[in-house]
Design a protein around this nucleic acid. Structure first.
Lengths: 146, 146
DNA sequence: CGGGTGGGTTCGGTGAAGCGACTCGGTCAG
DNA sequence: CTGACCGAGTCGCTTCACCGAACCCACCCG
């Protein structure tokens, strides 16, 4: 996103957007939350160019949002996982999703939902479970298609 | 942000980002929340190009995130205000700001803070007031420099 | 040996963002 | 009446990020 960066801005939001505000970055984080971890799967799911994907993954790993970890040797293959820092972007994603659902609903209803593991409730506007009231985060929710 | 758009994606987050994911869009919304409403002030505060600013404002007004309203005649001058839809982006901004503060703290501390009007508490991770526990939103908080 | 797979790198073209200058309606000071 | 000024854009050129597609390489499998 940053042609010329936002460094004139002394603002937490601007600093956050310098890292995750580039095109594709938040969608990548979203996909990792959804359980997508491999290069080829990102290409296929997002329709992102390989070269841009390489750049974004490098950036996100460099910033400590994602972690690159080998999942096999011979040949060496890597997967990308969320770090704690990346996991803390979960509230941003949830609120973006809620906003999108509210104002640009898809005819079929929300295509994927984040639900409280076990209880099955959804996060409300304060990230509390609509069913049992527990505070939700990336750790105690799972994403379900349809 | 959208060279080629995210329409292959059936996802609330992608739909939201199609509207507010372009470079500058969220920073514009942030500034309107901060009380900046005029073209020249956006140019000065953000360092955004006039032509890009024109395009972004048109887009955001077209999507119903901002409202363009004359504040004087002779000559006619307009200001840009948040709609209810725009105000609902507040949680996204707050969580982005919290994430930025946590991971990229500025030496001086948060340069601006959103505080509960009257009480003076800040929003916690669940958008509740740290001081009195009240649920916070765009309406009952104000932004304070330093 | 020949094809397949995962994970990239390289490269030319395009369109969006950047930079600066110009415009236009109107007000105001002298 | 003239010239300076202001807010809010528009215009034209340049530059750089993104796209698409091809290519590469290590390794496996038959």
């Amino acid at each position: 996103m940053l042609r010329r960066d936002y460094d004139t801005q002394v603002c937490s939001i601007a600093r956050a957007l310098e890292v995750v505000g580039e095109r594709w970055s938040l969608l990548l984080v979203r996909d990792v939350v959804f359980g997508v971890h491999r290069f080829e799967d990102f290409v296929e799911r997002l329709g992102i160019t390989r070269s841009v994907l390489t750049a974004r993954l490098e950036r996100l790993v460099g910033e400590g949002v994602l972690e690159r970890r080998p999942y096999q040797e011979h040949p060496v293959r890597h997967e990308y996982l969320l770090t704690e820092k990346g996991r803390q972007l979960w509230p941003v994603l949830i609120h973006l999703a809620r906003w999108g659902d509210t104002h640009y609903p898809s005819p079929e209803g929300p295509p994927r939902a984040f639900l409280h593991t076990g209880c099955g409730g959804a996060p409300d506007g304060h990230l509390l479970c609509t069913r049992c009231g527990a505070p939700l985060d990336a750790a105690n929710t799972t994403s379900h298609p349809r």
